[in-house]
Amino acid sequence: MPNYTLTVNGETHRLNLPADMPLLWVLRDKLGIKGPKYGCGIGVCHACTSHLDGKEIQPCQVPVADAADREVTTIEGLADGDTLHPVQEAWLEEDVAQCGYCQPGQIMAAVALLKRTSNPTDADIDKIENVCRCGSYFRIREAIKRAAAKM
């Protein structure tokens, strides 16, 4: 099995793994990083959404080989110690979460969107595909706008 160096939330890990193992299971089952959630395993629900070199990815769709020697950021790596990221703060202020299961992915998607465009329109927000089965979409929308205003 090949050897990979993986940097997750600033920490470097060396792992012996099959090249095609999805990053989601490497994170969750090998590294114990449980923020990215399984919701479908095929790239449609976006519950696992995280960042690779600062860009949005769905770890269930990224083989570990593709993440080697690059920077992975999960929801756990978003805040700066106890200081939350402005998107997380906006999420608290709007009290977005219901069951919360989709929210790590929603937040990571929102952060990626705000990196691409600092002042997203409703149409930009509409393009976020993350499923929220609790139906918190309107609060997600409001929180993204609030975060944009903050940043």
């Binding site: 299971w25 449980k34 923020g35 959630k37 999960t74 608290l92 979460a97 919360g100 929210q103 790590p104």
Partner: peptide, 27 residues
Amino acid sequence: TSRVDARAMVTGTLKYTLDLEVPGAMP
């Protein structure tokens, strides 16, 4: 009032069933 567990949710630390570390419990 905002959810009491909202911070755990937005930081990814809230533990759902499969996030628990039960010794020896394998996928």
